[in-house]
Amino acid sequence: MTATKPAQDWIKRAEPSGHVERIEAYFRGHGYDMHRHDTYAIGRTLAGVQSFHYRRGYRHSLPGGTIVLHPDEVHDGQAGTDAGFRYRMVYVKPALIQQILGGRPLPFIRDGISADPRLYAATEALLQSTTRPIDPLREDDALYEMAQALCAAAGHKALRRLPDYAAANRARHYIHASLEQAITLEQLARAAGADRWSLSRDFRALFGTSPYRYVMLRRLDQARRLIAAGRPLADAAADAGFTDQSHLTRRHVQTYGLTPDRWRRMLQG
């Protein structure tokens, strides 16, 4: 009988982005010795048991929770079972979180693991597969949502302030005039004459959705108008600002629950 060769440890890094580092890794036993980062290390265990020493305790992360290691906190990592563990992690500078929070204290998750579903949902975009690039506007959206979810999970009370309607509306008009090109939060902030994180907060408060999702919905509106007028799906996708037809299809299914091709075939009159 041939013995099964043990799996090899590996680490995959995503292509560098503007603000964060993303990895996915597998360790079959010992992962890494005690060390510390000057960033937040936020992630999730995908398979197995991820065990680590943290703040005078020994933690065990399972799939379904969120790991939140505070900047400059010492920790190690190893498999909690013989099966090894696989995980994804994103590293975010505390200065960036501070920009989003506007000078509020950094949120702290005491045990290094959170079961808060708001935090799990808010980290989904940043913790997707490392083989999938993240649209810059979506990344900024996700960072904002993650910072707010960190505050909620840490028990911080939300601050209330009057949103700047004029600035947010200037950003909205810029979106409508620029759907055929890539749009970043920096561009929206310049058009609005506002700080990008204040704009991100105010846009949600005033228009009910994030800047990234608003862009996607307006592109879907444009694509549907073109498809209804008889344009081929690939042409409609390109003219509405999607990277390709499959990108349009994914977003259409996520928003409406059916493919654009099926929607086109169902149109009457």
Rank of each mutant, 00 (worst) to 15 (best):
H35E: 07
H19V: 01
G77R: 01
S17Q: 00
E73D: 06
G43D: 11
E73K: 01
Y54C: 09
R86Q: 14
A83N: 07
Y32A: 15
T2W: 12
Y32H: 15
R13F: 07
Q50W: 15
S61Q: 09
I11R: 02
E15S: 05
G29K: 13
A47T: 12
P71S: 00
G64L: 02
G77I: 00
D9Q: 05
M89G: 08
D38W: 13
H70N: 04
H60A: 15
G29Q: 09
A3L: 07
D82G: 08
Y26D: 02
G57C: 13
G18A: 01
I11C: 04
R86V: 10
A47F: 14
E73S: 02
R86C: 11
T2Y: 11
H37N: 12
Y26S: 03
A14D: 04
A47K: 13
S17P: 02
H60P: 08
R36F: 15
H35V: 06
L69E: 04
V74D: 08
G18Q: 03
Q8C: 10
Y32I: 12
T81F: 09
D82V: 09
D82E: 14
P71C: 02
P6M: 05
P16N: 03
P6N: 02
I11T: 04
G18L: 03
V74T: 07
R86H: 12
T66M: 06
M34C: 09
E73P: 04
V68K: 02
Q78T: 11
F85S: 09
H75I: 00
D76T: 05
Y26C: 01
F52P: 09
H37Q: 10
F27N: 12
G29T: 10
E21I: 05
Y40Q: 06
V49K: 15
S17L: 01
H19D: 01
Y40F: 14
R86D: 10
G18T: 04
T81D: 14
T81S: 14
A79F: 09
G80R: 06
G43Q: 10
E24Q: 08
H53P: 11
K5T: 14
G18K: 04
R28Q: 13
I67F: 00
F52I: 11
G57F: 04
G64A: 05
D9A: 03
T2D: 13
S17D: 00
P71Q: 02
L62H: 08
R36D: 15
T45G: 12
I23E: 01
V68A: 01
E21P: 03
P16C: 02
G80H: 06
A7M: 08
A7T: 07
H60G: 10
A41I: 08
M34L: 15
I23Q: 04
Q50S: 15
T66I: 05
T81C: 10
R88K: 10
H70I: 03
I67R: 00
H75M: 00
T2G: 11
A3H: 08
R86A: 14
R28T: 12
P63V: 02
F85A: 05
I42H: 02
Y87E: 10
V20D: 00
G29F: 11
G48P: 11
F52H: 07
D82F: 14
S61T: 09
A79S: 12
T39H: 14
T66R: 06
G77V: 01
L62I: 06
Q50N: 14
